[in-house]
């Protein structure tokens, strides 16, 4: 009986959590299918009388979203691949190699995680403008090619790999480089998938930095492009929401395919480290 009751409570709590998470999405999709007047109606309408599918076409044509989309894909792919590559190498060094100042360096890097991202905007902008990178892909990519969060997460996983596997690989004729790519990385698949997804989402959704680091229309990314619907005369909510929907759809699909790895990866890195 008590067991049943606790089960009921758990399900109620989980449902509340799930609904809280889902409502904004439902509201977004719902609004994207409304007419202008319907969007500001009180009490709110959940299901519009006539579904305005045309909003999506209008939104797509309101700004060069095709260009934004390409920009977002390029930036996200290059950033993620680059970040993974540098992080895997750094995590391997911190977990396996012996070098002078290793622990001190690690502590300093760990310390950088305490600095809020907003504080870095101005120094990064100054640096990149002096390098002449502002308003290029480089401005959107280079600052994010290293991530200590990713390094740290991978290092925890790498460190949890038994030493004997490393020795066995050495005996079997694998150099450090080969051990890393043919043994350690495949063995850490779930953590790598998790940090990949986090990097992709972070890059895809980033707004502040692309807004600051780009000026011209054809360098903008999708989240920045959403601004097109906010003008001095107000916001066209139905188009903004339609655009928001097609901006997040790739991420939703990605998450649905990889959620198993994401959860396993995060819990593995957390528990074993």
């Amino acid at each position: 009986m008590a067991k049943k009751l606790s089960k009921v409570i758990i399900y109620v709590l989980l449902s509340v959590g799930a609904i809280t998470m889902l409502v904004p999405f439902i509201w977004m999709v719902s609004t994207s299918l409304k007419t202008g007047p319907e969007t500001i109606k009180v009490p709110p309408i959940w299901i519009p009388k006539v579904l305005q599918w045309g909003n999506y076409i209008k939104a797509w044509n309101a700004a060069p979203f095709a260009q934004y989309f390409i920009n977002s894909v390029v930036v996200t792919v290059v950033t993620t691949v680059g970040q993974l590559f540098t992080s895997i190498l750094a995590a391997f060094a911190f977990s396996r190699l012996q070098f002078y100042g290793k622990n001190l360096l690690f502590m300093i890097f760990l310390g950088t995680m305490m600095i809020p991202g907003e504080m870095l905007i101005i120094p990064n902008f100054v640096t990149l403008s002096k390098l002449g990178m502002i308003d290029h892909y480089a401005a959107l990519i280079v600052p994010w090619l290293a991530s200590f969060f990713t390094v740290f997460t991978l290092r925890q996983t790498f460190q949890a790999t038994p030493d004997q596997i490393y020795y066995a690989a050495k005996i079997d004729g694998a150099s450090d480089w080969k051990y890393l790519w043919t043994v350690l990385v495949p063995m850490s698949k779930s953590t790598i998938t998790a940090v990949t997804v986090l990097a992709v989402i972070g890059s895809w959704n980033s707004f502040m930095w692309p807004l600051i680091a780009t000026n011209s229309e054809n360098m903008r990314t999708l989240p920045v492009g959403l601004q097109a619907f906010t003008t001095d005369s107000g916001t066209t909510y139905e188009l903004l929401m339609a655009a928001s929907t097609f901006v997040i759809i790739p991420m939703v699909i990605l998450y649905m395919f990889l959620q198993k790895y994401i959860i396993a990866g995060i819990s593995k890195a957390g528990l074993k480290g």
Binding site: A168, I171, S175
Partner: peptide, 19 residues
């Protein structure tokens, strides 16, 4: 080093590659 000596070795916990 171990790489250059080319010996075969069996470890106590076998150390097979799980993947």
């Amino acid at each position: 080093d171990a790489l250059a000596r080319k010996v075969g070795m069996v470890f106590q916990n076998y150390s097979l590659y799980p993947h």
